[in-house]
Design a protein around this nucleic acid. Structure first.
Length: 306
RNA sequence: GCCGCUUUAGCUCAGUUGGUAGAGCAAAGGACUGAAAAUCCUUGUGUCCUCGGUUCAAUUCCGAGAGGCGGCA
């Protein structure tokens, strides 16, 4: 098997599809993994984020796992920069990088490159949030329409997140978000083998259910307990992850039963998996396979790497 | 056994003074310009429990039967 210096593999799929197991059996020899999962970058989120076992990480070098504390901010921009560095380093070692994870947004921008728009500013965002809080979302959308009619047209009036971001960009640059161009083609020299993992709905739901059960057995509650002891709040970026956020949601609404907690995690995971699939399907050039289809996977690798 | 209430979307229930029905939740589909496990959008045909009667027309009224809940025996 010849190793092309430009070789790069993407491995993605919805939560619970079986990415980690596949890494274990196919990519342990001569490969290094670059994590593309927005929650596994955080330390202390081991069980709830379904982080790979230490034994796997010991066998296959992993990059971008455990690089931040769960209260620290991260973004696609940082992901792309750090993933680029990781890929370079892996190649220097004569190994093949496998970008693996479930955050479709990260894959998209890694493949196409970042838009020209500026990175997010926490302080400006805070200001905007305060204004939105005070004057209401309708007002915010109208404000946006004044300074950036193109974005206002595209962003739905209920989409707090995107309205805030668009206003933030205008405030910090004086230019509308829509004036920054978005790349539509893969970056120069980037020709990865894109492997998408897919299972049918019932199969995936069942696996998600089993995995949540397993997380509870592994001590998800204890993990949350120690995060709380560290001062965790629902506002920590890491606490937005499924398996953690449900704790805060249920706390807020009063009651709390383990059964309820598990069911909520299962439901949110299944919904997330669906959103992931929608996003992944919009990425071009993907070879979709079932994780158990060894022959298909082997032939894809063979063809790509020779 | 008797009496009362109840049976409508996967679930909880509205509703039609008789013209074949609609909310919430669940579910399905979609979007994605540096927080993305985030944020947001769209989508409701279902023997209105069954059988019979009245009626131009019944899920709606009447009768019987069946299931559920409660009370009395």
């Amino acid at each position: 098997m010849k190793r092309n210096n430009a070789s790069l593999i993407f491995l993605f799929g919805p939560t619970g599809v079986g990415k980690t197991a596949l890494l274990e059996s196919y990519f342990s020899e001569g490969y290094s993994v670059v994590n593309a999962d927005s929650k596994q970058i955080y330390r202390h989120l081991d069980i709830g984020s379904a982080k790979p076992e230490p034994s796997l990480v010991a066998r296959i070098p992993h990059y971008l796992v455990d690089i931040l504390d769960p209260w620290e901010d991260f973004s696609v921009g940082q992901f792309v920069h750090r993933a680029d560095e990781a890929v370079d380093e892996i190649r220097l070692q004569g190994r093949i990088p496998v970008v693996s994870g479930g955050t479709a947004f990260y894959f998209k921008h890694f493949l196409y490159g970042l838009p020209e728009s500026p990175k997010s500013s926490a302080s400006v965002r805070r200001e905007i949030n305060a204004l939105v809080q005070e004057n209401g979302l309708t007002w915010a959308h109208e404000e946006l329409a004044k300074v950036d009619p193109v974005s206002a047209e595209k962003i739905h009036q209920n989409d707090t997140y995107r309205i805030t971001r668009a206003l933030e960009v205008f405030r910090s640059t004086g230019c509308p978000l829509s004036s920054f161009s978005v790349p539509t083609l893969p970056r120069e020299g980037l020709t990865p083998l894109i492997i998408g993992l897919e299972r049918d709905r019932e199969e995936l739901s069942l696996r998600i259910r089993q995995r949540v059960e397993q997380m509870m057995e592994q001590g998800l509650m204890d993990e949350i307990g120690s995060l709380l002891a560290m001062g965790a709040t629902a506002q920590w970026p890491g606490m937005q992850g499924i398996g953690y956020r449900e704790y805060f949601t249920l706390q807020e609404s009063g009651g709390f039963s383990v059964e309820e907690f598990k069911e909520l995690i299962v439901r949110n995971s299944i919904r997330y998996a669906k959103r992931q699939m929608t996003f992944f399907r919009s990425i071009g050039g993907v070879s979709w396979i079932h994780p158990d289809d060894r022959a298909q996977l082997e032939s894809l690798l063979e063809t790509y790497l020779s």
